[in-house]
């Protein structure tokens, strides 16, 4: 988080702590327009932050990075005086995130959304809860693949065989009938 804030650090040209704490360059400089406040933010984000003694007469060390908003306050402290009571101090701080971190936050949000859509979307679904989806698959044979084509063709062929047999029998019967009729006609002729 310290780095996250770093990109948007607004370093006042007058106040710079790098000379005082060269090893703490990475650490966020707490800058404020109100110099009276020499205190880190109390927010958790800045928990790693040490209270910095800001040197009053620090050298101007040009930073390698440019500050986009040099004079924007990051913190605001409102002190309201109410008579007869203690002062009411409202302490506001603004956190700036880097591009990468914004991206990470959005990524996390999108992932959560997608996961949520899938998870909660599948919690209750008439199709997935239906017999259509939940029943045992297949055609009841318990086989993994169904090679039915050969069986269908085989039964068709045996059907064909039966058809031919019936035709043959019919022809024979027809022939017999013709013979019988011819015999009858002859008998009639003889009579």
């Amino acid at each position: 988080m310290a780095e996250a804030i770093m990109g948007f650090t607004i370093s006042s040209p007058h106040i710079h702590s790098s000379s005082l704490q060269p090893t703490k360059l990475d650490v966020t400089h707490m800058t404020s327009s109100t110099r009276s406040l020499r205190q880190c933010s109390s927010s958790e984000l800045f928990s790693g932050c040490k209270q910095l003694e800001i040197g009053k007469k620090s050298k101007r060390v040009p930073l390698s990075r440019t500050n986009a908003f040099p004079d924007w306050p990051l913190m605001a402290v409102l002190v309201e005086h109410i008579e007869g009571q203690r002062d009411l101090i409202t302490h506001k701080s603004i956190v700036h995130l880097s591009d990468d971190n914004i991206k990470s936050v959005y990524t996390a949000y999108i992932m959560f959304t997608c996961w949520g859509c899938l998870f909660f979307g599948s919690m209750k679904d008439p199709y997935y809860d239906s017999e259509q989806y939940r029943k045992d698959g297949g055609d009841g044979t318990g086989h993994w693949i169904y090679e039915k084509q050969e069986d269908i063709e085989e039964s068709a062929r045996s059907e064909l065989w039966r058809e031919e047999l019936i035709e043959e029998i019919e022809q024979k019967v027809g022939g017999l009938r013709e013979l019988e009729e011819a015999v009858k006609k002859e008998e009639q002729l003889v009579k």
Binding site: E150, E153, E154, A156, R157, S158, L160, W161, E164
Partner: peptide, 12 residues
């Protein structure tokens, strides 16, 4: 072709 043949059992 064995669609036309009644004498065949399986055709693979």
């Amino acid at each position: 072709a064995y669609e036309l043949n009644k004498n065949v059992r399986w055709a693979d």
